Computed example of a mutant assay.
Amino acid sequence: MSDPQQPQVPPYAQPQPPASGRYPGQPAHYAQSQGYVLNGNSAQPGYPSPTPAAHANPPGRIGFIFGLIGIAVGLISSLATNVLVYSGGYDTYEVSTLLGTLVILVVAGLALGFGVAGLRRPNAPHGQAGIAVGIGLALLVGTLGSLVINAVGAALFQYL
């Protein structure tokens, strides 16, 4: 007589735990600690987090969006002022430059403020908030630096 044939199981297959969530002989607390932790988010592999909204960072996302809006306004303002200079619309050039600069400063301040608020949130992702702070600071420094350089240039032009 021969032994009954066992089906061939690939070496990588793992036995599945019974419905109780633990293998025979395992301590009862082991079934509760099988998940993984990533960025403070513990969840079972393959399953969504039980409370995804708890780990979101709305201020960081809002700041990131304001940063992107600031970049877009800066590009459009630069294009509009160049078109006005080359078309001879010098009267509207100054108004366009002033409005563009003011909008950029306001939006950059909002991006910076919301970005900092997003960075101060504990147990929340900080990627978009950090990018918002970077964009906000870059827009503020660039715009204020441009204003100072233009003012110095205008003052030197009058005296030379």
Results as ranks from 00 to 15, higher is better:
residue 45 P to M: 05
residue 126 H to L: 07
residue 28 A to P: 02
residue 119 L to K: 15
residue 122 P to D: 10
residue 3 D to K: 14
residue 1 M to I: 11
residue 129 A to V: 00
residue 26 Q to Y: 04
residue 52 P to N: 03
residue 91 D to N: 13
residue 160 L to T: 15
residue 37 V to F: 02
residue 42 S to M: 13
residue 9 V to T: 12
residue 23 Y to P: 00
residue 74 G to I: 01
residue 5 Q to N: 15
residue 135 I to A: 02
residue 129 A to Y: 00
residue 17 P to K: 10
residue 105 L to N: 04
residue 104 I to G: 00
residue 138 A to E: 02
residue 30 Y to G: 08
residue 19 A to L: 09
residue 26 Q to P: 01
residue 120 R to H: 11
residue 149 I to C: 10
residue 104 I to R: 04
residue 96 S to T: 06
residue 133 V to I: 03
residue 70 G to K: 04
residue 83 V to G: 01
residue 132 A to N: 03
residue 153 G to Y: 03
residue 97 T to S: 14
residue 136 G to P: 00
residue 93 Y to T: 07
residue 141 V to E: 04
residue 107 V to Y: 00
residue 47 Y to M: 13
residue 119 L to V: 04
residue 56 A to F: 09
residue 101 T to Q: 03
residue 147 L to S: 09
residue 62 I to T: 11
residue 97 T to W: 08
residue 76 I to K: 11
residue 66 F to E: 02
residue 158 Q to T: 12
residue 122 P to C: 05
residue 36 Y to H: 15
residue 144 L to T: 12
residue 23 Y to K: 08
residue 118 G to E: 00
residue 78 S to H: 09
residue 15 P to L: 04
residue 80 A to G: 03
residue 96 S to M: 02
residue 96 S to E: 01
residue 67 G to Y: 00
residue 154 A to M: 13
residue 105 L to S: 06
residue 117 A to I: 02
residue 124 A to V: 05
residue 156 L to Y: 12
residue 154 A to I: 11
residue 138 A to T: 06
residue 75 L to D: 02
residue 86 Y to T: 15
residue 40 G to V: 01
residue 19 A to M: 10
residue 160 L to Y: 15
residue 141 V to P: 01
residue 128 Q to P: 10
residue 55 H to S: 15
residue 64 F to K: 06
residue 64 F to R: 06
residue 24 P to Y: 12
residue 8 Q to Y: 12
residue 133 V to Y: 01
residue 86 Y to A: 15
residue 83 V to Q: 07
residue 107 V to R: 01
residue 43 A to N: 10
residue 78 S to Q: 11
residue 76 I to D: 10
residue 10 P to R: 12
